[in-house]
Amino acid sequence: MGHKDKDKPEQSGYEAELRLLQIELVKLQNSLISKGDQILVILEGRDTAGKDGSIKVITQHLSPRETRVVALGKPSDVEASEWYFQRYVAELPKKGEFVLFNRSWYNRAGVEVVMKFCSKSQHANFMETVNGFESILASSGMTILKYYLDISKKEQALRLQERAKDPLKQWKISPIDQQAQKNWNAYSKSRNEMLEKTSSSDAPWIIVKANDKKVAHLNMIKDLLSRVSYPGKDKNLLKVDKDITFQWEGNVSKLEK
């Protein structure tokens, strides 16, 4: 005999809403595949802000064949001597693909400049050329969605402590993580400059306040779905909380809340 319905754990409000949004993501992917469109989602943010978890809930029920998560490591000596964008170009979505970059070419506007892994001239060159590069991608028909996940300093400290204690999260610990709190203000400064100079009409930055992971997941997916067209969209599901997820419009004080 099978289990009775009353024996099943009830879905939480979060799980129920997430499931409906994941159904919308599947609808989007079906449209993407049939039309041969290309979507690139870029996830940047503070260390421990929840990029991995966000990617997991977005991709959970998507087709593995047409979905790719790209998380490039440190460039090799050969790659370091090439055009900066070259190794990323190889990972861009092909026709019908949904690709998520877990960190991206924006390393040069964040960790590389804060940790002095690049020169001032390399950083300046990146800031001058990235908008043009993304405009070329957009004009070729690619949809670029850029999300910056932000958390408070206190929340980051708690998550770093939790990560250090959890034996299942040891792979996430890096020397750069250990510098996150020490370099908090430097990361804030580089974040603000990046948002100010690289949020364009072709590829605007969207901020996700991610102190509450579940709320962040739901609002990020709603925002993503609201920015693309696909048949059968249930717009009633896609009401975004603008205090949680909003397009960057130069309001630094809104980030610090």
Rank of each mutant, 00 (worst) to 15 (best):
H123T: 07
D37E: 13
L100C: 07
Q60K: 08
K182S: 11
D37Q: 05
K222W: 00
L72N: 11
I176F: 11
K116Q: 11
F85I: 10
K239H: 05
I206G: 00
S54N: 12
E24V: 06
N125Y: 11
R19L: 11
Q22P: 00
L62D: 03
E15S: 09
Q179T: 10
S63G: 07
V130C: 01
E15H: 04
N102W: 04
F246M: 13
W248N: 00
K233R: 12
S63M: 09
L160D: 08
I33G: 01
Y14F: 14
K197V: 10
S174W: 08
L237N: 05
K235F: 07
K213R: 15
D223L: 14
S119W: 08
L145Y: 10
Q156I: 02
I33V: 11
R65E: 07
Q22L: 02
V41W: 05
Y84P: 14
R65H: 06
R87Q: 12
A157S: 13
F246Q: 13
Y147H: 12
F85T: 10
S188A: 15
M220F: 13
A216P: 04
F98M: 08
G2H: 13
R103Q: 04
A180K: 12
G45M: 12
K254Q: 14
K8I: 09
R68H: 14
V41Q: 06
Q247S: 06
S121L: 07
L25C: 00
K120W: 06
N211V: 03
L255T: 07
F117W: 12
Y147D: 02
A109F: 02
V78L: 13
S81I: 01
I206W: 05
T143A: 09
L72E: 09
R103Y: 04
W248T: 00
E162S: 15
I33S: 01
D212K: 13
L20M: 14
K4N: 13
Q178L: 03
K153V: 06
P75Y: 01
Q179I: 07
S199Q: 06
N125K: 15
N102I: 04
S63L: 10
S201R: 15
V69A: 08
E79S: 03
S190M: 14
H217K: 09
W184S: 05
I42C: 04
D150L: 10
E82A: 12
S188N: 15
Y84L: 15
E155M: 11
E196N: 09
G73N: 14
E66I: 04
V89T: 09
L21C: 08
G36L: 01
S31E: 13
D166Y: 04
K116D: 09
I244Q: 00
K222I: 02
P64H: 05
S54I: 07
C118K: 05
A109N: 06
Q11T: 11
L158A: 12
K222P: 01
K165A: 14
V70N: 06
S190Q: 10
E10I: 13
I23R: 08
R103T: 02
K165S: 10
L145Q: 12
L168P: 04
L225T: 02
V111N: 00
Y147E: 03
L62N: 03
